[in-house]
Amino acid sequence: MKTLEATKLADLAAALTAAGYRVIAPCQRGDQVHLECYQAGKTLRADVIPVNSAKDALFPRSEVIGRYRFEGNEFETVPVAPQAGKTVLLAVRPCDAAALAPLDAVFNWDYKDEFYNAHRDATTVVALACTAADDQCFCTSVGGSPDSTANADAVLRPADGGKRFILESLTDKGQAIAAAGQAVLTEGQAQADPPAQVAPAFDSAAVTAWAKDGFDSPLWKELSLACMGCGACAYTCPTCHCFDIQDEATRREGVRLRNWDACGFGLFTKHAGGHNPRHDQASRWRQRVMHKFAYFPERFEMLACTGCGRCGRLCGNGMSIREVCSQIEQAAQAGVK
């Protein structure tokens, strides 16, 4: 088997960079760990779940989808092609890799989104099996597991008490990574460490079942009281994919941008005429939960939540979808509508 010394993760990143990959890896940034483009000198951290998710590489927070030039009162549109270089998502968690399924679904269910697919096709996913979890992790409650290889092209498994990783290639793309990183990999034996224990937090089927008739429940008001309507949860979520389209122009030229957007924002559904179907934070928070646990499964036969726990970990107002789902499950058990 191929192994990699734990201290050599950055060397693997460097080797892949030298092989022409854009390497997106968990890099130390101040007190935090961010999934960002590896550059020489950056410290890689495999021990912490990064604050941002892997979706950033496939569905960037701001992407040019159109260009135009102005000539007096007239304009000319300029064709735009996706800028998608060969990319590897190195040491991303199974919950981030799992999120590619709902993203693939929405960007391909009818029209095929050229931008997303260009990034997706150019990307190799090297997952990192989790051997530790924190109190916000809940992958096992939403059909995942800490050592899942779903959507991964290769997987790094911590081994020998964290001293090294076993690199397991699962697809041709994964083989290519092993080949490109050959110089820093060793052929040898290692004992994979046991996966993290992620205790189930709630029964997602019970949440989905309750949500089917739960739209008008008075519970939403209570469950959402702490939410202040920012986009922190949606923007760090590996599956959230709502976006806005905005033009930015000078007098001579401009671009049309696809920017992330979030159902938690008050203006998200507000009509130009003033009517806002989701007029309070309770209805917006309800949309967030219902979309992940009821509407998306109804449409695409999968949950739009992978249990990464970022929303709960990062919310400045103490909201947590994990906690809310547990509360919904309790309500369901108690027969509360």
Binding site: N52, A232, N317
Partner: peptide, 24 residues
């Protein structure tokens, strides 16, 4: 550079009570 424009800063701030923020 890492700012995603999630406006968590604005949401957390008691002083940011404008009904319509200038960024909107």
């Amino acid at each position: 550079e890492p700012c995603t424009r999630c406006y968590a800063c604005r949401a957390a701030c008691p002083g940011c009570f404008c009904e319509r923020c200038i960024v909107e």
